[in-house]
Amino acid sequence: MRLLPWTGPGGKPCYLSTDNPDSLLSRLADDVEAAQLASAETVLAGARAVLHDNKSGERAVRFALTRTVESLGDVLRIAVSRGGDDR
């Protein structure tokens, strides 16, 4: 069972049951995960820039933290999926 990088109705986890890593849904999940990881790198760079800028105001810091929390959630979901941990 593979935990997919998106949720279903009501925020419930979605799983894929297949032995074929080249199936359409497996490839789609791989593509979504790759996009999420790339986005997390961008968000991290932006958050670092905000934190290193002494002139950053509360609004910028809150925005950076909000995006960072979202990205961290995505990255942790990918880690659980790839590690097979069903938390």
Rank of each mutant, 00 (worst) to 15 (best):
residue 1 M to V: 15
residue 1 M to E: 12
residue 4 L to V: 11
residue 5 P to E: 10
residue 7 T to D: 12
residue 9 P to G: 10
residue 10 G to V: 01
residue 10 G to C: 00
residue 13 P to G: 13
residue 19 D to E: 15
residue 21 P to R: 08
residue 21 P to T: 14
residue 21 P to C: 02
residue 21 P to H: 04
residue 22 D to F: 07
residue 23 S to W: 05
residue 24 L to H: 02
residue 26 S to E: 13
residue 26 S to A: 15
residue 28 L to C: 01
residue 30 D to P: 06
residue 30 D to A: 09
residue 33 E to G: 05
residue 39 S to L: 05
residue 41 E to H: 06
residue 41 E to W: 00
residue 42 T to K: 04
residue 44 L to E: 11
residue 46 G to C: 08
residue 46 G to S: 12
residue 47 A to M: 06
residue 47 A to T: 14
residue 48 R to V: 07
residue 48 R to M: 07
residue 51 L to Q: 10
residue 51 L to E: 13
residue 52 H to S: 14
residue 55 K to T: 15
residue 56 S to A: 06
residue 57 G to N: 14
residue 59 R to N: 10
residue 59 R to F: 09
residue 61 V to T: 14
residue 61 V to W: 03
residue 62 R to E: 10
residue 63 F to Q: 13
residue 65 L to A: 15
residue 65 L to F: 01
residue 69 V to R: 13
residue 69 V to H: 12
residue 70 E to Y: 09
residue 70 E to D: 14
residue 73 G to Y: 02
residue 73 G to V: 00
residue 73 G to W: 01
residue 74 D to N: 13
residue 75 V to H: 02
residue 76 L to W: 08
residue 78 I to N: 08
residue 81 S to I: 14
residue 81 S to R: 13
residue 82 R to M: 07
residue 83 G to D: 15
residue 84 G to C: 04
residue 84 G to A: 04
residue 85 D to W: 11
residue 87 R to V: 01
